[in-house]
Design a protein around this nucleic acid. Structure first.
Lengths: 231, 231
DNA sequence: ATTTATTGTTTTGTCGATGATTTCAGGAAA
DNA sequence: TTTCCTGAAATCATCGACAAAACAATAAAT
């Protein structure tokens, strides 16, 4: 056959597809925090029955992106400064441990992955300064790819799964409030320092730099959220 | 009114209740690994329709306790030695970071929690040696409570949630294979050493001891699983 | 005026039924 | 024997409809 992986959605159930759509809609902020997710409305909107919708919503509940109370339906999980600081602690803890393990276990292909993704990110970092608007999405991708590459060799898929979950949560906060354009920080320099520490196999330095990297984002974000709440 | 919290299951949906039952059945091993979870069968068994059942199964999928393939139904997630080693790495990483944070942030009430749960666990450790059969369940509870107490002050509910998830997964493996009765290890001594390191605020020692504590369990468990597979 | 019933409306959670997909058994062809 | 097909049985995913619960608004009562 000439077409092998054309049917990407083979055995794809409606519940799964709507799960993916809702998920990205929530993370991207298209569905606002605390927005109620009424079954009938979404049912009409996505053109499917209530059953697969509820299944998708249940999975999103387990992911922590949706909240539910018995007999009172579903709603997009709220965004809250305190909750984000909490989340950031967890993310930092997991990421630093993962990078330590990665530095200990990583081989050649891991190193080359770090180099490759950094190379691409460096270009995006520059593009972000010059054309902030259109470069945003691809910067997000490159940024995520670089950080994922640094921890890729940690040796535990479970740890990576946990990390991905926390990353998604933080991504939602970032998309919601941080304005990367007027960030008075040298992202390229931060990333370069992280790359160097990682490739030098300097665990302590890598952990410290990544921790600062996350904390800087968290500080900017919480300031912006606080002033947003006041408005 | 004289009865205030009698209705513990107020607003409890069928999906949630069956989720809880299935969850504990899977963790306790009552539902065997790789057992297929056919809708109609479970539907009759629990006396409910297919819709709430599917919702519960979807959440269990997100938890990693159940696997599903589109149009091919659900099955209890398999138990696998390699998977468990992977899982143990993640758990160790999260637990050690959490205990570090806890040591840094913990106050008086945290210390007293550690002392209290250790006291109860010490009694259970002794009971386990003498009456292995009937003391098993309460030992599990006391053990979980002690370890939870050590990390309780980490300052992040998200980190605790992630930790709990990994703990449940490991619990399933433990229940499935480890025979605590003929464990040629001094659990009481290990726990005492952990308590002392924690109360001394010695991060490095606490991390090391907890890591060894987990690794010992993992080693015993993987040996038992390997010989179990060969039989 | 604030609280407490009451009634009607909206929305949720659940069921039974149905079309679609997969699995399995048994026979034909290699 | 093995492989391949074919049709039947089983199972899945989805729908539409219904009962129960929450919500809103009005009326009655302290």
């Amino acid at each position: 056959m000439s077409f092998q992986d054309v049917d990407e959605d083979r055995g794809m159930t409606l519940a799964e597809t709507v799960y993916g759509r809702l998920r990205s809609d929530i993370i991207s902020g298209e569905r606002a925090p605390e927005e109620r997710l009424r079954i009938e409305r979404l049912s009409r909107l996505y053109g499917i029955g209530p059953t697969p919708l509820r299944e998708a919503l249940q999975r999103l509940c387990a992911d922590g992106l949706v909240w539910s109370r018995g007999n009172r339906g579903f709603a997009v999980a709220p965004l809250d400064v305190a909750e984000f600081m909490d989340l950031n602690i967890a993310r930092k803890a997991v990421e630093t441990e993962a990078v330590s393990l990665s530095i200990r276990n990583g081989g050649d292909e891991w190193e080359s992955g770090v180099v490759a993704t950094f190379y691409r990110l460096e270009k995006q970092d520059r593009a972000l300064v010059e054309h902030p608007e259109e470069a945003l999405d691809s910067w997000e991708m490159a940024n995520a790819a670089f950080h994922r590459a640094t921890v890729a060799a940690c040796g535990s898929r479970w740890l990576l799964k946990v990390r991905a979950r926390l990353h998604d949560q933080c991504e939602r906060y970032r998309r919601a409030s941080v304005d990367l354009r007027r960030a008075e920080r040298d992202l390229a320099a931060e990333h370069r320092a992280i790359r160097d520490a990682v490739l030098d196999r300097d665990e302590a330095a890598a952990r410290k730099l990544i921790g600062q990297h996350f904390d800087t984002t968290a500080r900017m974000l919480s300031e912006e959220m606080r002033q947003g709440q006041g408005a």
